[in-house]
Structures are given as C-alpha cells and as structure tokens.
Design a binder for these strands. Sequence first.
DNA 1: ACCCCTTTTACGGTTTCCCGTAAAGAAATG
DNA 2: CATTTCTTTACGGGAAACCGTAAAAGGGGT
Lengths: 222, 222
Amino acid sequence: MFHKVLVAEDLDSISIAVVQALGEISILEIHHAKYCDDAFLKIKKALHDNQPYDLLISDLSFKPDHRENKLCSGEELIEAVKKVQPDIKTIVFSIEDKSFRIKSLFNNLGINAYVSKGRDSIPELQKAIQRIYNNEEIKLSPELSHALRDKSLFEIESYDIALLKSLSKGLTLEDISSEFKDSGIIPNGSSSLEKRINRLKIYFKASNNVHLIAITKDLGLV
Amino acid sequence: MFHKVLVAEDLDSISIAVVQALGEISILEIHHAKYCDDAFLKIKKALHDNQPYDLLISDLSFKPDHRENKLCSGEELIEAVKKVQPDIKTIVFSIEDKSFRIKSLFNNLGINAYVSKGRDSIPELQKAIQRIYNNEEIKLSPELSHALRDKSLFEIESYDIALLKSLSKGLTLEDISSEFKDSGIIPNGSSSLEKRINRLKIYFKASNNVHLIAITKDLGLV
DNA sequence: ACCCCTTTTACGGTTTCCCGTAAAGAAATG
DNA sequence: CATTTCTTTACGGGAAACCGTAAAAGGGGT
C-alpha cells in the first residue's frame, strides 16, 4: 500500500473521516493540510527531503479566509504539484458532480481518480486508492465515461467563458465589444458576440440571455 | 448532557466526524440519518415510543438521489419536526454562509444554533451543543448578529423568489404575468412585476436582469 | 361617505436584445 | 491567382427590457 499520503481539505469535519479511512487501509504516514498553500509547501518539503508523497487526495473548493493564499483551489494545487512532482498520484475528492468539470480534471490535470462526496463515499475512496495502487483501470460511472468521450462538451472554450462572465456582470453587448477590443480578444464585433451567444443558447437550450446565465451558473461554468 | 441526539447529514465523510465528536462530549445515544425522510421517521418513532430526541443536528442541503423523498432539505425537515415536537433543540450544521439565509433559520424556524462547516467547525459544534444544554446565550459572529437585526434583509419574500425563479427559467415578463394569473399570485400585472424586479435590481445593485440573476444565483436565492 | 395613502396597473419612449440576411474579410484549395 | 469556404462584421426590423410618469384600484382612518 502507499506509504505517504497527503490530504488537502479545508473542512475539519471531512478531513477527520478521510484521515481515519486512510488509517483503516493501513497507510502509515498520513498528513493533512487545511490550505492549498500549506499542502504545496509540504509536497515541496517532502520532495526536498527525498521522502516524497506517494499520493495526494485533494478537495476542489476551499473556503476563502482572512489568510492570503496563492493557491485557492484544488485545480491550482494539483497543477502546481504536478510541475514539481509529475509522477505523484492524485485523487480529487469533491462534492462537484458536473461531468464536464470532472472531465477536464482527467484531461487537463491528469488526475488518477475522482471520488464524489456522497452518502457512501468513504468506502469508494478506499477502493479508488486500492485500485490506483494496483494500477487497475479506473472505474467510472457510465454517465461520466460517456462524458469523457463526448467531444462536444469540450468545445466550450475560455472565449465562451469570458463572454458568459462579462454577460453575468451585467454588461451589454456593446460594453463587451469594447472590453474585448481593449483586451485584444477577437472576435469582438458586437455582431460576432451575438452570434457566439446564440450558439451557446442553442447548445444549452436557453431561450434568452437570462436563461443562459442561469443555466451556465448552475453548471458552474461561470 | 443531552442523552439522545439525531444527526441528519447525507455525506458520510462528515457524519462520521460529527458522530465521533458527539461521543467525545459523552452523549450516550447518537443516531444518524442520511435522508431527511428517514430522520423525520426516527423523530416520530422516538416520540411515539416516549423516548424523544433531545437534539437534532441537521445539514441544510441533501444530494438528490434515485430515492423519492418528501423532505429534501434541512429547512423542510426542521419545519416538519417542529410541528410534531416543538420543544426539540435544533442545530444547523452547514456550509452555507449567506447571512440572510442564516437569519431566516433563526427567525422562521427558531433554530437554537448555527454552526458553519469550516476549518475548525467540530470544536465549534461541540461548544454550541454545550451552550444550548446550559441554556446559555447563543454566540454569534458580529457580522451575523448585525444581519439578524437588519430588517431590510428580510424583505425578500417568497414572492420575489418565485419571480426570480421564473425569470431564470427564461420566461418573459408577459409569460410570468400570465403564469402568476393562473396560479393566483398577486400582483401579476406585467408593470408590477417590472417594478418589483426593479426593486430587486436596486437592492442587489444589478444593472439588468441578467446581472440580477447572476447575483441571486451566487447568493443561492434561486 | 370622504379623504389620504399605498399598491397595483397602464401607457409611452428609449435602449438593448433577438434573429435573419448579407456584405466584407481571411483562410484554404486547386 | 482565382475560386471556394469559413469567419467576422454590418445592417435592419421586431420583440422584450428599461425607465419615468400617471391613472386606477384597494385599504385604513376620521
């Protein structure tokens, strides 16, 4: 079994159970960080001491705090960690259940497993750790494995996100047009923006801008 | 100390720590339910057996499931429980940190304490239980106690929520007007709706409908 | 009953959204 | 280089939102 595991989780009520669960499957060294920055420091320290972590289990969202942090989310943490220790195994343990967000974790960050916090997630987490240790195939829910194959999910790019973000800030198309011109983002003609928004509306089956923002907010896209 | 306590919490990763924390402060009978419906049944059963619960600790949001449930949220659960056992003590233990939502829990449901899931919430939960048992004053964060006094926070009613919900579904004012007429909700003239939306826009400092929905979505109002 | 005040509704003008069409520009192909 | 094709931009008309004003309807008071 893995020797040294780091848990990055802000909620004490959850980390207690996770640490306990790791103990149950006879992991010897279990460390825990409440902030992404702390987790990153521990990873670097361990690497420097030639006693690197085998596995990182991280949450995605961390509550903002009085503390100033450089890394504020699980995504940022994993990205940073992979740069200093590319071979580390990673599991994301989060409440998030939007398939395209999980998809991007596998595709962009190369995580090894995703376990959704739910009514029976502790055993699932233990199983996932076991599987990774044995280099077994990751088991995914049918819905999720479909999402991973579905290309269309991935064609919503940063441009669209920026557009949706600006919309949700209450800007008019004209506003966004000049905003994009200033930032050098193209296309930026109000007519092009309109067309792009229309594509999004068709894709998300939204009947107008308000509806579109409501939907994409629900999906966590903005 | 309390004898019999019920924990309503869907995430196993959290309920484990909560149950453990209750054991630490020598509570003898600790029960746990993953669904609001189950929790309600247990309360009723205990009451019927003349061994009622002293305290209910509940989460607010419960993940939807394959299971059909009558009660889907902590609010609904507490409301139902208070009808059959008005004297029961209640603590809400949730990640929610929007002050006006917490405010409504105290004012509408008459909860005894609110503990926000965070980096140090298990000790806080234990302290809150102790305080309630000793009938001490509830300690609130300054921000929150201010919110409880602030009247303006409370004037967003179910009417506004219904309106925002309809808006976020992509309906036009005309649509909503006839929808409200059908449901017997008044006022329902499109002009009144407009005026009400305008009040909300001023209150939330939104520049248009899209912005308004984005803000209220963020606040968890819709 | 009358007056006062609040709430609800109605109306008009302006802006923005919405949607189709078409022109201008850029990239690709032969 | 000419032709095709795709992308970006422009334009125009109708719908809905936006905003101020004012009339109608309802609800206490005296």
